[in-house]
Design a protein around this nucleic acid. Structure first.
Length: 418
RNA sequence: GUGGGUGUAGCUCAGUUGGCAGAGCCCCAGGUUGUGGCCCUGGUUGUCGUGGGUUCAAGUCCCAUCACUCACCCCA
């Protein structure tokens, strides 16, 4: 038997209703806040990701699905969406009429990591990006959006974490100070951190190994090195969140794995997902549009881990499936034919009707109707057909009434539609 | 890439010192010849993950391999 690829999964009926509900809830919220949907391809030239995410990030170094196409071009299954949205913004000159644009997109991403709880090789993200606004107000707006989405989806046990990573004017100073500090701690660090020390010292701050955390207690704080502009920006973000009543924690160790982030970064974290604490994450990437050949426009965005969100929403998928309005139990060939025709007529008018396609006893058809949780059952047998009427049974109350066949579709609609 | 745990019916899982592969749920039919849920009776469902080895005999012991899963790393 051929099985699906490791780390990939099918989303089956029973669970897919939850996915649809989340998708609709998110799309509605984004539209309410002025975002437009943008759909981007799932493959891009490898170079796009290498240049935007960063050559020596884990994603680019070892997690991408990359292959040459027949012409020899190196292509990659997208590991994230932001690079493509930025590419589209530049390529179609979406900044020309109005540099301020708000986009959202929903779709699959691919990273070749070892699967575990809340992590798959094909996983889904809901992304939102805002271009052309340098104001810290939009930083707060995006965090507010995330928190609001969690509320609407009845997600509990989540907390917003925020941080500022500085900008090209001040981050180098901090990196320098950090490197000096780390040089004196070499003996205490885990092997990974020792390796990270010169390639990407910021990530040592994020290490979860207890010994490293211990060693980093008196590490220089990035916040002490922020330039006046970055400091003011971050203060406004915090003040705005306070005004909006959004709870958050400033987390100085919130570094993030993609190179393009500047200034504000944030995550929505949960304790309900085992080792995977991040349900959503994002940040400002003011230099990326220009770095990829576009105009010097600031930008900020986030990604929500759809698969992770599904696991923590406080909704029961069983409550989201819509059972049929009507089940038609027909006995005899002629009745079955009539029932089939009515089913089609009702379906066209938006009534969810079902029949049993086999030739089974009334009892077994009733059982099936019950199993499907049909609200009503229409019984049509030889007696009814002879008398020109059918029996409509309310399954909850067990009340039954007679319906004339000639205006059956209308009568059924009137009775069962609330 | 590294480490731990788990693979037996569609699902959840038993299976003793190696001795005929099981239960519950689900599904189907009947009890009730035209009325669901509860109950009763009967029935269907297996490369025991895969390949090798030990043995008279392997679901059980040994080796390998694959898959799933959790964790490390990193991230959504």
């Amino acid at each position: 038997m051929i099985q699906l690829i490791r780390g990939f999964k099918d989303i089956l009926p029973g669970e897919v209703e939850l996915w649809q509900h989340i998708e609709k809830t998110a799309a509605t919220l984004f539209e309410e806040f002025g975002f437009s949907e943008i759909r981007i391809p799932i493959m891009e030239k490898t170079e796009l990701f290498a240049r935007s995410i960063g050559e020596d990030t884990d994603i680019v170094e070892k997690e991408m699905y990359t292959f040459p196409d027949r012409k020899g071009d190196l292509l990659t299954l997208r590991p994230e969406a932001t690079a493509s949205v930025v590419r589209a913004y530049i390529q179609h000159r979406l900044y020309a009429q109005d540099p301020v644009r708000k986009f959202y997109t929903i779709g699959p991403m691919f990273r070749r990591e070892r699967p575990q709880k809340g992590r798959y090789r094909q996983f889904y993200q809901i992304n939102a990006e805002i271009f052309g606004v340098a104001s810290p107000l939009v930083d707060a707006e995006l965090i507010f959006l995330l928190v609001t989405l969690c509320e609407r989806l009845k997600v509990t046990d989540v907390a917003a974490h925020i941080n500022s990573l500085g900008c090209p004017a001040c981050r180098p100073d901090f990196k320098q100070a950090l490197s000096v500090f780390l040089a004196g701690k070499t003996a205490l660090l885990c092997s990974d951190c020792d390796r990270r020390r010169d390639r990407n010292p910021l990530r040592v701050l994020d290490c979860k190994v207890p010994a490293c955390r211990e060693a980093m207690i008196d590490a220089p704080s990035l916040h002490d090195y922020l330039c006046a502009a970055c400091r003011a920006h971050f203060e406004t973000v915090k003040a705005t969140l306070d005004r909006l009543g959004v709870a958050y924690r400033v987390d100085k160790r919130l570094v993030r794995g993609l190179d393009y982030y500047t200034r504000t970064t944030f995550e929505i974290q949960t304790g309900a997902l085992g080792a995977q604490s991040a349900v959503a994450g994002g940040g400002r990437y003011d230099g990326l549009v220009q770095a990829l050949g576009g105009p010097d426009q600031p930008a900020i965005g986030f990604a929500i881990g759809f698969d992770r969100l599904v696991e923590i929403v406080g909704l029961n998928p069983a409550d989201l499936v819509r059972p049929p309005d009507l089940f038609m139990a027909a006995l005899g060939e002629k009745s079955q034919q009539m029932a089939f025709d009515w089913m089609c007529a009702l379906g066209r008018q938006g009534v969810r009707a079902e029949i049993d396609y086999g030739d089974r006893s009334l009892k077994s058809q009733m059982k099936r109707a019950d199993k499907l949780s049909a609200r009503y059952v229409l019984i049509i047998g030889e007696q009814e057909a002879a008398q020109g009427k059918a029996t409509l049974r309310n399954m909850a109350t067990r009340d039954q009434l007679e319906i004339p066949l000639e205006r059956l579709v209308e009568a059924v609609r009137e009775t069962i539609q609330p």
